[in-house]
Nucleic acid binder design. Structure first.
Length: 819
RNA sequence: GCCGGGAUGGCGGAAUCGGUAGACGCGCUCGACUCAAAAUCGAGUGGGCACAGCCCGUGUGGGUUCGAGUCCCACUCCCGGCACCA
């Protein structure tokens, strides 16, 4: 055995073995239970960053652990290859996006291999490949015929200087990132998928996703935002029209003191022609970005329209205001404002001196105080005509009944979730397979003409917009329906369209004749999905939606795509997200070159639990390297004494039995940590403790000592094998095994080795630690109390008091309560 | 602004069900080896004091409990998402 730990040589050895045995090829015909472990595929930006390394190390550890547990593991990898950065790179370097992307894929594939991730590369896919996106186009045309696709207008960020549509990230403080021009909102026609048709199922099924973090399920619940309420109408005095509003609080209807209109509400737009204040609000609403964060951060501002609405129950006249916090996108673009019982309405009312009328009192009978904030809890109604005295719950129903009876409103279920706009006015994406015909309208591309291939030899120029719009050879076509000259859609799909079904395609990536085949149900649902918390809502919700759509198309049998989900935290350096602009990046490749892949993997798994942020530390990496070198040294020194004798558990000395207990405690702890808790950091700490103990026992070269040492080192190697596969592959062979460690079985803790005859009990007096006592493991409270009180320091604290109570927690502590 | 998460030694973190706060690693101090340094190995390392012991200590302020880092209430600060970044 090599005297030194040389990562490079060890890596080559293991790589050669895995390649020769095609170790990570997943086979459908394998009879063992399947386990599909998937890490979110990367955008091929050019080089791996630490976030990737963390994500993929977690996935690889889980995959290798499950393999050792006897599962038939599928762990594939691919490329989320469409997206904006490729177009930016094209502008900066004059390389077409396709060429840039494919080059990046090649470089990153080599990096992933170097890190030792056990992927089944035979299933690799790239979403920019026509053989991939053709099925997405195929599905889209099916959904169009099923009525799940429609066309509507939606706002985009328009850069008036560059004459192009900007992504939200390209809008900085309301201005275009390149031109610096103030961005305008423009309504343009786009394609939508009816995800809201699935809103109830997407919401209700969250309760069954027990393998998902509660945090993510909560975020999705809030995102879908189902609320039960009443849709009602307020006639506008002097105009033959009504304001439609939705409220979740019909019980506060008698507290309405004004109406709020979105600046882009038709009435606002009409008034703006003559009213300067309203016009200003409309102008403000149309400038700046379209993101919700940007809109919500604005100061609450408004303007009185001079119009009056008529209260549907009291007939009272209510002023109508244009208010910039009312969003045209939600509901009807108008709200009934109840400042006494809604905080936003309260703030607006105070800003403009509008009346606040309390109509719900706290249920506990306390005074209603509206001087500092709104009272938004349920309570008991006052000043509410015939509904006075009812609880909010009862009044909700009674008022809803009354409105329904009078035809002025009806109960309604409303969602915050909006339909999914899938059109992007960009080049580097999958073409939307639709044809616009003057006579027939929008016509889907027939199956036999798919895929609509994206031309790849293009030039991207700043401010030029999508080159597809300048390529008649792309867009000029004939109508599949009537044969007349027609134009292709030049918008491309949102890249979430590709990432919403790639996990299914991995099951049958070589299927040329269909989107999916029966192998999809052989492998999916994904047993363990791993990725960044930043995908908690959008990607994970769209993928769930897609899966259900595909189920309804008869392409998969399951209801949900991901049984278990692990959302990993970000990688920070100096307390901040790594970024080029901050100059705090760490290149994983540099670390691999210096210390070897095992060290990088060990550090990223050791430095923090996977779902928390990870703070990068160069000296921490060195510590990981030191540990691996010590482990290598322990095995080398042990083997230096020749083959170890067989273990006879009955013939061990007290010290040897204690060490052997430590070995089996480590197995128990690591199995729980890796298999159930996913706290790889504590599993590694346990192995480090074991190695420290083994190091202290090195001097014992008796038969029993060497046998326990062999068992201890094998245990350390087996537990670390998923985390540091290269070194463990090597050491396992050195320890005398023919079979590779990747195919070895996960160790089992021996119950007998774990047994203790004595335990240490903590002794407290009035909850404060006062001593420790050693007792037989099966000692009862009486025995424990007697021994504890005999302990001098405990006796000193109990002296002169009377014992009120003794709390005994077997195996842990005894607490004497004395006064 | 709305939604979600976090805060524990000099640093990363541990404490799994309310039961010894600080496992493990980093850093630092001292010692061994060395002509010397690096590497390595050993010991120590939350703060304070009248130091076999005691007091204080898990972002802040209150509460529940024999006992609270852990549960409850009210706050502060930091981070993530907000529908065209992926």
């Amino acid at each position: 055995m090599d005297d030194q730990y040389r990562p490079r040589a060890i890596e080559a050895e293991a790589q050669a073995y895995w390649a020769e045995h095609d170790t990570f090829r997943a086979r459908e015909e394998d009879p063992r239970p399947k386990y599909y472990c998937l890490s979110m595929f990367p955008y091929p930006s050019g080089r791996l960053h630490m976030g990737h390394v963390r994500n993929y190390t977690i996935g690889d550890v889980v995959s290798r652990y499950k393999r050792m547990q006897g599962y038939n593991v599928l762990q594939p990898m691919g490329w989320d290859a469409f997206g904006l950065p490729a177009e930016n790179a094209a502008m900066e370097r004059g390389v077409p996006p396709a060429a840039w992307t494919r080059e990046n894929i090649g470089a990153m594939r080599e990096q992933l291999k170097g890190l030792g991730f056990g992927y089944d590369w035979s299933r690799e896919l790239a979403t920019c490949d026509p053989e991939y996106y053709r099925w997405e186009q195929w599905l889209f045309t099916r959904l169009y015929r099923r009525g799940l696709v429609y066309r509507d207008t939606a706002p985009v960020n328009w850069d008036p200087v560059d004459q192009t549509v900007l992504a939200n990230e390209q809008v900085i403080d309301g201005r275009g990132w390149r031109s610096g021009a103030v961005v305008e909102r423009r309504e343009i026609p786009q394609w939508f998928l009816r995800i809201t048709d699935y809103a109830d199922e997407l919401l209700d099924a969250l309760d069954g996703l027990e393998g998902w973090p509660e945090q993510v399920r909560n975020m999705q619940r809030n995102w879908i935002g189902r609320s039960e309420g009443v849709a009602l109408r307020f006639p506008v005095a002097g105009r033959g029209e009504e304001l439609a509003v939705f409220t979740t609080r019909p019980d506060t209807l008698y507290g309405v003191t004004y109406m709020g209109l979105a600046p882009e509400h038709p009435i606002s737009l009409e008034l703006a022609e003559h009213d300067a204040a309203v016009a200003e609000l409309v102008r403000e609403a149309r400038s700046g970005g379209t993101s919700e964060a940007e809109l919500a951060a604005r100061d609450k501002r408004g303007a009185d329209t001079g119009l009056e609405a008529v209260h549907p129950l009291t007939g009272e006249r209510i002023p109508v205001w244009v208010a910039n916090f009312v969003l045209m996108e939600y509901g009807s673009g108008a709200v009934m404002a109840v400042p006494a019982h809604d905080q936003r309405d309260w703030e607006f009312a105070h800003a403009y001196g509008l009346p606040v009328r309390g109509v719900v009192h706290p249920a506990d009978g306390s005074e209603l105080d509206l001087s500092a904030e709104a009272f938004s809890d349920y309570g008991v109604l006052v000043d509410s005509g015939p509904f006075t005295g009812m609880t909010s719950e009862r009044a909700f129903e009674a008022i809803a009944d009354r409105l329904e009876a009078e035809g002025r409103g009806e109960r309604q279920r409303q969602y915050r979730l909006r339909d999914w706009g899938v059109s992007r006015q960009r080049y580097w994406g999958a073409p939307i397979p639709m044809i616009h015909c003057e006579h027939c309208g929008a016509v889907p591309v027939p199956d036999e003409d798919l895929p609509v291939t994206l031309p790849e030899d293009v030039e991207i120029t700043p401010g030029g917009g999508s080159p597809l719009k300048r390529m008649p050879e792309f867009y000029r076509t004939t109508c599949p329906s009537c044969g007349a000259v027609a134009e292709r859609e030049t918008d491309t799909f949102d890249t979430f369209m590709e990432s919403s079904w790639y996990f299914l395609r991995f099951a049958c990536a070589d299927q040329g004749g269909a989107m999916l085949d029966e192998r999809a149900d052989r492998w999916t649902p994904v047993d363990q999905y791993i990725g960044g918390i930043e995908h908690a809502v959008l990607h994970l919700l769209y993928a769930r939606f897609y899966h259900k759509v595909l189920r309804d198309e008869g392409l998969v049998g399951s209801d949900e795509p991901f049984t278990r989900l692990l959302t990993q935290g970000m990688v920070l350096k100096d307390g901040a997200k790594m970024s080029k602009s901050k100059g705090n990046t760490v290149d994983p490749q540099e670390m691999v070159d210096r210390f070897g892949a095992d060290t990088v993997r060990l550090f990223t798994m050791f430095a923090a639990p996977p779902d928390q942020v990870l703070e990068w530390s160069d000296s921490g990496v060195e510590g990981a390297y030191r540990f691996l070198r010590r482990l290598h040294g322990l095995v080398r020194d042990h083997l230096g004494h020749g083959p170890a004798p067989a273990l006879d558990p009955q013939a061990l000395t007290r010290e040897q039995a204690d060490l052997r207990r430590k070995v089996h405690e480590t197995i128990a702890k690591a199995s729980d940590d890796i298999g159930k808790r996913f706290t790889f950091n504590t599993a590694i700490a346990a192995v480090m403790e074991l190695c420290n103990a083994l190091g202290r026992a090195q001097a014992d070269t008796s038969d029993g000592g060497r046998a326990v040492m062999q068992e201890g080192l094998e245990t350390a190697v087996l537990i670390l094998a998923p985390i540091t596969p290269y070194l463990c592959h090597h050491l396992w062979h050195e320890l005398g095994h023919e079979q590779a460690v990747v195919d070895a079985a996960w160790p089992q803790a021996d119950a007998q080795a774990l047994e203790r005859d004595e335990i240490e009990l903590v002794v407290q007096v009035n909850g404060k630690l006062r001593g420790h006592v050693t007792l037989p493991a099966d000692a009862d409270q009486e025995q424990a109390q007697e021994t504890a009180l005999a302990e001098p320091n405990v006796a000193r604290h109990v002296e002169g008091t009377s014992i009120k109570k003794v709390v005994f927690v077997p195996g842990r502590l005894i607490n004497v309560v004395a006064q």
